[in-house]
Design a protein around this nucleic acid. Structure first.
Lengths: 121, 121
DNA sequence: ATAACAGTTGAACAAGTATTCAACCGTTCA
DNA sequence: TGAACGGTTGAATACTTGTTCAACTGTTAT
């Protein structure tokens, strides 16, 4: 007679001591959610393309759309996400809205990712 | 008579010179796709929780499942993604499979994100 | 005033993805 | 040998998300 086996782990976990040590050492749940949220913003090639452009120069929406061969609408939607997460800022001048990077850390994280990828063979 | 206006940018882009300068300066499209792919892997709180645990100690699947209160199946699915992107490695010992970090860069990128988040007020 | 344009927005659609569920593989041990 | 267990896998489901489309706002210039 085959026993129904739970897909969860039993109470007698394999390494209780290690698990408790790790549980005490990792950041709080909500911090890890924030970390994931930040990375999620970078996890789209449209947004990484926009950011890589803004590393070079401040740009208006139409410039970005032209550069990436996208509609202004699609660009604007992505810029809203980058704005809400405080990664870019904007200033309005006449009809145009100029976007630029809002945070120094961002380019360091981005460059570190490039470095990581280039060191793979 | 209202003209139908394209949502794309006209040929007479606002700042032709700047756009061309930026176009020449940004990395190739496929590199930026790779950057996005890497960040996408970090862009899920389950995976950041797994990674934060592995920063502390090597762990088997059942340990991770117990620690995060998830099914072994769900954990295994995410570990497969982390394995395919060369972020974690595993070794088999008896019935158990032990996972650990495969790359030094990963923890630096992760710690930099934590630093970024903690410096926000 | 009104036309033209830069940009934004919300709804709708399509594509991607994390978890669940059930079945399965391989190793250990009785 | 076969039951138990750690772990993996594929299909199904529910959810998230990026782009498109159309309508709209605000500013400039005629």
């Amino acid at each position: 007679m085959k026993k129904i086996v739970s897909d969860l782990c039993e109470d007698d976990v394999i390494h209780v001591g290690v698990v408790e040590k790790v549980r005490a050492a990792i950041p709080d749940e909500d911090v890890l959610v924030d970390v994931a949220e930040l990375f999620k913003v970078f996890g789209d090639s449209t947004r990484t393309r926009i950011l890589s452009a803004l590393f070079v120069s401040e740009l208006c929406v139409c410039d970005i759309a032209s550069l990436l061969n996208m509609t202004k609408s699609a660009v604007s939607h992505q810029l809203r996400i980058l704005r809400q997460t405080k990664i870019v800022k904007n200033r309005k001048q006449g009809k145009e809205v100029y976007y630029s990077l809002d945070d120094e850390h961002i380019s360091r994280i981005y460059k570190m990712a490039l470095e990581h990828l280039s060191e793979e063979k």
